[in-house]
Amino acid sequence: MIEFSLADILSFLLLATRWTLALSAIAFLGGGIGALLLLLLRYARPRVGGRLMHLYVELFQGTPLLLQLFLIFFGLPKLGLDVSPLLAATIALTLYATAFLAEIWRGCVDAIPRGQWDASASLGMTFVQQMRDVILPQALKIAIPPTVGFLVQLVKSTALASIVGFHELTKAGQVINNATFQPFITYSIVALIYFAICYPLTHWSRRLERRLSPTGHR
């Protein structure tokens, strides 16, 4: 049996961590764009858009991410589209992030008092002007902490990509474990790497939130 040093294990895991970070970043960006589109539809065409968004969120928050991933990984080939594990994971996580970000941001927009819509409407502003100059600047401020909080959830969720064979951090942990038979050390290190990514984000999110809550704005 080949002996692996701790440094070997660590560098192998850290290399795979790049994929965890990349997958998180892509899904976060894609999800952000998807969520904005859903929200635009919801506020511009409340009846259709509202129902569509409700359905979408219910579907993606009511089923396990693992099964969403499986359905894409095994479903797209049925339509004749060949998907790599990376592509399947990217699509699944993007759709998943869309649902959560849309729901979070909707809450933030709805938290803006109705008087702000009334006042800007009474001044003759159009929907787009109301959104851009009055509603979004206020909503954005309260949206940042929960958005960062969701980013933590998303980073953790990328671990599921290992199950369809994508070589990110968790998969690398399994590979190492199969070679070294040292599951305790291996999974401890894997967990610590996730922790090192997520904890600063959690901490940041909480600090932003605390800065918002006690005194309100200015």
Binding site: K156, F184, C198
Partner: peptide
């Protein structure tokens, strides 16, 4: 609380099922 909330459930599961028996 912080340790659990900032690591994936899947890794926690593997740690418990594969890691603890080695102890």
């Amino acid at each position: 609380v912080e340790l659990i909330r900032n690591t994936p459930f899947l890794v926690q599961l593997f740690f418990i099922f594969f890691g603890l028996p080695s102890l």
